Simulated scan of single mutants.
Amino acid sequence: MSRSIQEKIDLTVNWLREKVEESNTKGLVVGISGGIDSALVAYLIKRAFPNNSLGVILPCKSNSKDRLDALEVAEGCEIEHVEVELSEVHDQLFDNVKKTMERNELLDENNNLRLSDANLRARLRMSTIYCIANSLNYLVVGTDNAAELHTGYFTKYGDGGVDILPIANLLKREVYEWSRYLGVPQSVIDRAPSAGLWEGQTDEKEMGTTYDMVDDLLEGKEIPKKDQEIIERLHKRSEHKRRVADAPPVF
């Protein structure tokens, strides 16, 4: 007999508490982006630790709508939250890196500066969250769902660099189901999934397929060959993200 959403949420909340107890930490922290995945996680950790959970909002050359949605999430679940503006830090570091590469003649037309820029934002955000988490002795909670983990749609050592992943086994459609059930703001539920990496960027546009297609594949359903090939290519290309760093055998 399948469990109800409430039962699954209760089990997840209990699991979060167990992880904190096992790690001898005091609570949980999550970066709130304004997207549905981080919104759901914020609602879950607030339930698990009403007095020891924290949301961190991290604008980094972001669309102002992202910040407003993140604030609505924080206020909706009544989680304590802080905001750290990273735009200036990002500009200084990225400009310094570019100038250093130019000076050493390492830049050419083959360099993917847009991806480098986007990944730096994700890693700066996670470094900031860990700085806060370490200060409080909290665990850092990740927001990746099953579809993102399968396709590698996360930044290595950015949003992928976390302590625990409470929604890692949820399909994207289940993320929406749980979010509606818990009362996540409708504006967040309605927005197109986006990592906010650059203006106009959306997850599905970047992946070249849809979350529905990924969910169907993970459920063992038949999907169009074109989508299957895209998803399989994404999965294979991102295998390194799902493993610990390789090391040579003992000789």
Score class of each variant (00 low, 15 high):
Q201I: 12
G158Y: 04
V162H: 00
I5D: 03
A118L: 01
L86C: 06
A48F: 12
E109C: 06
V244E: 08
D159N: 14
S127Q: 12
I57G: 06
K8S: 03
A247E: 06
E21Y: 15
K98L: 08
G161F: 03
A48C: 12
I164F: 03
T151C: 13
D10Q: 10
W198A: 07
L58D: 00
I223H: 00
R191Y: 04
V250R: 10
T209I: 06
Q92F: 13
L106D: 00
Y211S: 15
V214G: 04
Y43S: 15
Y176K: 12
Q201E: 15
E232A: 02
F49Q: 15
S179R: 05
Y130P: 00
I36C: 12
E75Q: 14
P59E: 03
N169M: 05
F94N: 02
I57F: 10
K225N: 10
A39Q: 07
Q92Y: 13
K19N: 15
G35E: 05
A168H: 02
I79E: 01
N111C: 12
N24M: 13
A247G: 06
N169C: 03
L136I: 01
D227E: 09
L44H: 14
L197A: 08
E199T: 07
T25R: 15
E239G: 04
D159Q: 10
T202Q: 05
E18H: 13
L139Y: 01
R123D: 00
K26I: 13
V175A: 05
L171P: 01
F154Q: 06
H81D: 11
P50Q: 14
Y176I: 14
F251H: 10
V188F: 02
L40R: 12
A146F: 03
T100G: 10
L16M: 11
T210W: 14
S53W: 11
G55T: 10
S187A: 06
D108R: 00
I129Y: 05
N104I: 04
I79W: 02
I5Y: 09
R121S: 01
L54F: 13
P249H: 08
K205W: 05
T151D: 07
V175D: 05
T202L: 07
A147E: 06
V30Y: 11
A118H: 04
T209V: 10
E109V: 09
S116Q: 11
E174H: 11
